[in-house]
Deep mutational scan, measured.
Amino acid sequence: EKTLKIVADSEEEAEALAKELAEKYNLEVTIERNPEEEGKYVITIKIKP
């Protein structure tokens, strides 16, 4: 299993990107607040072998 993390500037941007990735590529995608940067969100994508 591989994990890729993407940082987005807004929750709306994160949700839109996560939804597109999940639907288009059938990936497991989660969104959470970035504890290191206020106002940023981390999109985590898990790629199963």
Results as ranks from 00 to 15, higher is better:
residue 44 T to M: 05
residue 14 A to P: 00
residue 12 E to H: 07
residue 29 V to R: 00
residue 7 V to E: 13
residue 45 I to H: 00
residue 2 K to N: 14
residue 42 V to S: 03
residue 27 L to H: 07
residue 24 K to L: 08
residue 16 A to R: 14
residue 45 I to G: 04
residue 24 K to H: 08
residue 31 I to V: 11
residue 24 K to Q: 06
residue 44 T to R: 04
residue 22 A to Y: 12
residue 4 L to P: 03
residue 17 L to E: 01
residue 14 A to E: 00
residue 41 Y to G: 01
residue 21 L to R: 00
residue 39 G to D: 06
residue 19 K to T: 07
residue 31 I to K: 01
residue 20 E to L: 12
residue 27 L to M: 14
residue 25 Y to N: 04
residue 43 I to D: 00
residue 4 L to H: 10
residue 42 V to W: 12
residue 42 V to I: 14
residue 41 Y to R: 02
residue 33 R to L: 10
residue 3 T to Q: 08
residue 24 K to S: 04
residue 19 K to M: 07
residue 2 K to Y: 01
residue 16 A to D: 04
residue 2 K to T: 14
residue 26 N to G: 14
residue 19 K to P: 00
residue 26 N to V: 03
residue 39 G to W: 05
residue 4 L to S: 05
residue 7 V to C: 15
residue 46 K to W: 04
residue 45 I to T: 02
residue 45 I to N: 00
residue 27 L to W: 15
residue 20 E to S: 11
residue 23 E to N: 09
residue 43 I to E: 00
residue 11 E to K: 14
residue 46 K to A: 08
residue 10 S to L: 01
residue 32 E to K: 06
residue 38 E to W: 04
residue 21 L to D: 00
residue 43 I to S: 00
residue 17 L to P: 00
residue 15 E to M: 15
residue 38 E to L: 05
residue 42 V to D: 05
residue 35 P to L: 10
residue 29 V to Q: 00
residue 24 K to E: 03
residue 49 P to V: 15
residue 16 A to E: 09
residue 28 E to A: 06
residue 11 E to A: 10
residue 32 E to W: 03
residue 29 V to S: 03
residue 31 I to M: 04
residue 38 E to F: 05
residue 23 E to H: 07
residue 7 V to M: 13
residue 11 E to R: 15
residue 29 V to W: 06
residue 13 E to V: 08
residue 15 E to R: 15
residue 48 K to W: 14
residue 48 K to L: 12
residue 42 V to Q: 04
residue 27 L to D: 03
residue 45 I to Q: 00
residue 31 I to G: 00
residue 8 A to E: 01
residue 15 E to K: 14
residue 4 L to I: 15
residue 24 K to F: 08
residue 46 K to N: 08
residue 47 I to P: 07
residue 38 E to K: 11
residue 12 E to K: 08
residue 15 E to V: 15
residue 36 E to C: 10
residue 2 K to E: 12
residue 15 E to T: 14
residue 3 T to P: 06
residue 23 E to C: 13
residue 29 V to H: 01
residue 8 A to L: 15
residue 25 Y to D: 04
residue 8 A to I: 13
residue 26 N to L: 05
residue 12 E to Y: 07
residue 29 V to T: 04
residue 15 E to N: 15
residue 22 A to N: 09
residue 41 Y to N: 02
residue 12 E to R: 07
residue 17 L to H: 02
residue 48 K to S: 11
residue 11 E to G: 03
residue 14 A to I: 02
residue 16 A to W: 09
residue 49 P to L: 15
residue 9 D to M: 07
residue 44 T to Y: 08
residue 45 I to L: 04
residue 38 E to M: 04
residue 6 I to A: 02
residue 23 E to L: 10
residue 37 E to R: 07
residue 10 S to V: 01
residue 7 V to Q: 12
residue 35 P to M: 13
residue 7 V to I: 14
residue 47 I to H: 05
residue 23 E to M: 09
residue 21 L to Q: 01
residue 1 E to K: 09
residue 11 E to L: 15
residue 13 E to T: 05
residue 25 Y to M: 05
residue 42 V to M: 07
residue 35 P to H: 09
residue 19 K to F: 06
residue 9 D to T: 08
residue 37 E to A: 13
residue 42 V to K: 02
residue 20 E to A: 14
residue 8 A to D: 00
residue 37 E to Q: 12
residue 18 A to S: 04
residue 34 N to S: 14
residue 2 K to H: 12
residue 43 I to V: 13
residue 23 E to D: 11
residue 28 E to G: 03
residue 11 E to I: 14
residue 16 A to C: 10
residue 6 I to F: 14
residue 28 E to M: 13
residue 33 R to M: 08
residue 7 V to R: 10
residue 3 T to A: 07
residue 49 P to T: 14
residue 40 K to C: 05
residue 15 E to F: 14
residue 4 L to R: 07
residue 42 V to R: 02
residue 1 E to V: 08
residue 13 E to K: 07
residue 8 A to V: 15
residue 14 A to D: 00
residue 12 E to F: 10
residue 44 T to A: 03
residue 30 T to S: 12
residue 26 N to I: 02
residue 23 E to T: 07
residue 3 T to D: 08
residue 13 E to W: 09
residue 2 K to Q: 12
residue 37 E to D: 13
residue 16 A to I: 09
residue 39 G to R: 03
residue 47 I to Y: 14
residue 36 E to H: 12
residue 49 P to K: 09
residue 36 E to G: 15
residue 29 V to I: 07
residue 5 K to V: 14
residue 36 E to D: 15
